[in-house]
Design a binder for these strands. Structure first.
Lengths: 139, 139
DNA sequence: TAATCAATTAATAATTTTTTTCATTATATC
DNA sequence: GATATAATGAAAAAAATTATTAATTGATTA
């Protein structure tokens, strides 16, 4: 149950936190902006302030429940952290997001970091393109 | 001369545009925020409004003179586009930025895009870590 | 189960980053 | 050099995010 997930990371199980966590778990979109979440909660009559959404998401991030990304439009999007790291492939037409993990790339990143004497802490790779669907319907 | 570079892409050679272009070409930092540029111009008494800086950078971006990045703090940074694509390695302590290009990774990205039926248009890879300098002085 | 207390929230204000508007000024062309 | 047009600066507006504060909620204890 979500209440336990929150307790585990030292956060009180409050209504806003539960709702946001549930939303991230069950929403169609895996990747949501703070605004997305705020609106979704309004629709289900769970009136949670936008400031609270931001605050909770930041708490979730530091607690490791959630991962924050900056896709190239400059907006922050959040996704549930389900343990397994992955990178992203994004359609610039429809916004579809595909997650993938590739060993060749993962390894090569370590090699590169080493080469430059860096102690790697994190990385993110975004590939932008046009998905097969959007290729068909010519704009 | 920079005047020609601007004309070539269909932009009038105005003072603000020349100054910003020159700054990007000759500054120590290759990667600057709009604010950075604004401040640098103030220091040299070239009074260019912040709004103009943003406007010009956006024009430069669409003209292909400049590339815009969103590093993981969410800020936009701009760098001169000198033709050769590259990825970035960033020190999270001192902010140092290293540019690199790796064929293994480049090729693998195409392979992945293909695999998912995407027609790849662009990509960016940011590796975050601690540079050798910052590793020595323990925080 | 009620009382207590610290943590959390909503609401609002404040910040930060970026974009727009519009009157004024500069640029390129003739 | 005069003129038409495009670009600028300043200020205001928008958009995104963070901080403040008084009031409420959830957890704990009696």
């Amino acid at each position: 149950m979500e209440t336990q997930d929150l307790k585990k990371v030292g956060l009180k199980a409050t209504l806003p936190r539960l709702r946001i966590l549930q939303l991230l778990e069950h929403s169609q979109q895996r990747h949501m902006t703070a605004e997305d979440i705020y609106k979704a909660l309004l629709e289900t009559r769970d009136d949670v302030g936008l400031a609270t959404v931001y605050r909770v998401l930041t708490q979730f991030e530091t607690a490791g429940l959630v991962v924050r990304h900056h896709f190239e439009n400059g907006l922050s999007v959040f996704e549930l952290n389900e343990g397994r790291h992955h990178d992203h492939l994004l359609c610039i037409k429809c916004g579809q997001v595909v997650e993938f993990l590739d060993n060749v790339i993962e390894k090569q990143q370590c090699t590169i970091a080493q080469e430059y004497g860096f102690d790697i802490t994190d990385h993110c790779l975004y590939i932008y393109g046009i998905c097969s669907n959007c290729q068909i319907k010519k704009s």
